[in-house]
Design a protein around this nucleic acid. Structure first.
Lengths: 202, 202
DNA sequence: GGAAACTCTGAATGATGGTTCACTTCTTTC
DNA sequence: GAAAGAAGTGAACCATCATTCAGAGTTTCC
């Protein structure tokens, strides 16, 4: 026995891996998936292209990890709000506002997560996360119906519609330069979502 | 002067071009953009790969033409209904039903137009057509507001939301095998859309 | 210090798939 | 029928990147 990774070495490698993921996320947020070559990502992290393969078996695996980390944060935040305190309708409204505000504050990343062209592996991951958003919304809609706050409806379909509607509304502003009327956009978006779920006008 | 295309020859060439577009559309509907290689498309049309370049300067140009033709038909049909007879709310409901029914009847193509991963040129075209859908919906929403049938709202945002919502609701069933409950889906979808625009419950 | 085991490097490799082109085949005109 | 010009062919070409790998540099442990 002549070599055994010391704890410090293990930590260093882990840190490099994390740094790589962080840098890759930045690159993707800036130039999109299609322009985020292994070389570009490695350069951004200050390592050689070949070294990427010490941490990930393939570019796709790295891309999936980048997507999962970033999208996972959003699902977590949204779930936190949607399952938090307040009436179902309040939670829905607040959840959408928080989601949209976060997206508008990090447009590049949001666009990458929501809509930017990506390799198949990332596309599959995106579908999976859309399903999670749907599930979160569907649960709130069901609770709203149970509480008599929302009219009878197919919660799954409304949830899918909310997911698509929010994405579409955000994507166009995401492509455009900084929107001066963020607040109006958020107000209209949440109002639309409440109508979509059938919440009575305030 | 020793050669000059005869009218019949011009027609023949035009027919070949049309046939190529038709076959390319079928291939895309069946296997998606990413699998629709020049060779596959040419094979399907019964010509050599090189011959494609007698009709289009690049694969991207052919892909864009395929997209425009197919998406243009849908925009036309939707516009026809949305600008047809009836109250704004009726037109909106009917338009969405027609759009969704057509999509469900040609799932492969609908998926290709709405969501399938595609090269940048097609992606740009997709954005453009989404804007057209939005414009059509926005006009109906405005008319509904003017007629006092819909509450005050930002028509552009509602239109974007409708576009995204319909796409999202359809895409999942589009991926799944034939839905036995098409009618229920259509009913829920139109009901959701009317709520989204703020039409009073029937 | 030195052998063993590992990490890092970046140029070479390889796969993919759009595009080109020398050549063949077909059309037109005289 | 023959020359001129165009369309059709498909194998070769080429550009793009992800991936590999032989060698250089580091770390570990005796």
């Amino acid at each position: 026995m002549a070599y055994r990774k010391t704890p410090a070495e293990i930590r260093r490698l882990e840190a490099v891996r994390e740094h790589l993921i962080t840098c890759a996320t930045s690159v993707v947020a800036e130039v999109g998936w299609s322009q985020a070559s292994v070389t570009a990502v490695a350069d951004s992290a200050g390592i050689a292209a070949g070294s990427v393969y010490q941490h990930f078996p393939s570019k796709a695996a790295l891309a999936v990890e980048v997507f999962r980390r970033a999208a996972g944060r959003e699902v977590d935040v949204l779930g936190e709000v949607l399952n938090g305190p307040g009436s179902p309708v309040e939670r829905l409204s607040h959840g959408i506002e928080v989601f949209a505000r976060r997206a508008l504050e990090n447009r590049g990343l949001a666009y990458a997560l929501l809509a930017a062209p990506a390799e198949p592996a990332v596309g599959a991951e995106r579908l999976d996360f859309r399903r999670r958003y749907r599930a979160l919304f569907a649960e709130v809609v069901r609770e709203g119906m149970a509480a008599g706050l929302l009219p009878s409806q197919n919660g799954e379909i409304t949830a899918a519609a909310l997911t698509g509607a929010i994405g579409e509304v955000l994507v166009d502003p995401l492509g455009a330069p900084a929107e001066s009327t963020t607040d109006e956009l958020l107000a209209e978006l949440t109002a639309m979502a409440l109508r979509c779920a059938g919440a009575p006008a305030t």
